[in-house]
Amino acid sequence: MSRNEPFGIYIHIPYCRSKCRYCDFYSAPGARGVPQAYVDALLRELAKNTRRPDTLYFGGGTPALLSPGQVSTLIQAADPLPGAEITLEANPDVVTPETLLGFRQAGVNRISFGVQSADDAQLQRLGRTHTAAGAARALAWAQEAGFPDICGDIMLALPQYTNAEFDRTLALLQNGGCTHISAYLLKVEPGTAFYRNPPAGLPDADAAADFYLYAVRQLEAAGYRQYEISNFARPGHEGRHNLLYWNCEPYRGIGPAAHSCVDNVRRFWPGDVQGFIDGTIHEEIEGDCTAEDYLLMQLRLTRGLDLEEYARRGGHFTAAQQAFMRQCVTHGYAVWEGSSFRLTPAGMVVQNAILTELI
């Protein structure tokens, strides 16, 4: 691994006050915050790291359940490089003006709020515990705390969804000073409350595609440039940490259910909080990062796949696959320019189908 390559550390905070009805991420009850024993286990693993990161990401779960003091201790232990991007995910109803100021003073420079919708009935349906007014307050507090990057999530194609709901949510995030917006379609995943009891009024696939394409247009018009299938940013505010994943660059994940890719080998931690605290579980090898992984990740990006780099990594398209790619261009699903093959927004809607043909 070259020392000139970007390198990131992901710290998983699995604790949540409650489980959202659509969530299939690994989590644990955390009504009283994050136990110090868990923070100590993170510090134990951070002490084994030998490389300073230029991105540090607190994901979850609900990382904002950490105290500012705990965040400060973890950042110091990670020892990020000067100018590192340091992100912390938050729920609007978990933060206060004091904790946000504390996170900022600890070194966090990118705060990411799971807003999802500006419709209170929808938020309740999703199992979210905040309101639209609460989200607006949290965004205002983040601005007051001086975060240079404020991010917000929007969920699309929710039950009984309308373009008007999207417009209200976008306005809430714009007014809250968001420099980055993630907009993604609801997926009903196995093991979730929505999977066990599907909500009424879910849009069909065609309607969901229309909502996605409408969101892309509206976000672009509002000054948020699309750079990845679900991510939009004002120029210069793209998420550097997630770009590590999509560019197949090295990152280390710490915590139960966290993943890593270092020296082209993918690893993961088993989902076991107590085992992680006790030190009885360890990272397990998932496999090598392959040319197919690179293809999967790069076609998420609006700049697309560099065919020369793909070939350098051992990738190859058959004559039949190349003919399919040309068909994608003809039908408006892709653009092929020189050595770059990239999907259009219409192509991103059917990305899985396109990848099935290319892998």
Score class of each variant (00 low, 15 high):
111 I>W: 00
109 N>A: 03
118 A>R: 06
110 R>A: 09
102 G>N: 09
95 V>H: 03
95 V>I: 05
99 T>L: 12
115 V>Y: 13
97 P>Y: 09
102 G>I: 06
120 D>F: 11
114 G>H: 02
104 R>E: 09
109 N>M: 06
110 R>N: 07
120 D>T: 11
95 V>P: 02
91 N>S: 14
108 V>G: 02
113 F>S: 03
99 T>Q: 07
102 G>D: 06
114 G>W: 03
106 A>W: 01
102 G>E: 12
93 D>H: 11
114 G>M: 13
107 G>H: 08
114 G>D: 06
103 F>G: 03
98 E>R: 10
94 V>H: 03
111 I>T: 04
103 F>V: 01
92 P>V: 04
97 P>R: 02
97 P>H: 05
101 L>Q: 11
109 N>S: 08
110 R>K: 13
102 G>A: 15
107 G>D: 04
92 P>H: 09
101 L>Y: 11
116 Q>D: 07
92 P>K: 06
115 V>S: 14
96 T>C: 13
105 Q>T: 14
108 V>P: 01
93 D>V: 03
115 V>E: 09
93 D>G: 13
108 V>S: 00
100 L>F: 01
92 P>R: 06
110 R>W: 11
109 N>K: 03
100 L>N: 03
92 P>N: 10
95 V>M: 04
111 I>Y: 04
117 S>H: 13
97 P>C: 08
91 N>E: 14
118 A>C: 12
105 Q>K: 15
119 D>R: 07
111 I>L: 04
99 T>Y: 05
109 N>V: 13
99 T>H: 11
113 F>L: 02
101 L>T: 14
97 P>G: 05
101 L>G: 12
91 N>K: 01
113 F>I: 03
95 V>E: 10
101 L>I: 10
94 V>E: 08
90 A>K: 00
91 N>I: 12
91 N>W: 05
108 V>A: 13
90 A>P: 05
96 T>F: 09
92 P>I: 04
108 V>I: 12
104 R>S: 07
91 N>A: 12
111 I>K: 01
98 E>N: 11
97 P>W: 04
95 V>A: 01
117 S>E: 15
111 I>S: 02
114 G>S: 07
99 T>V: 12
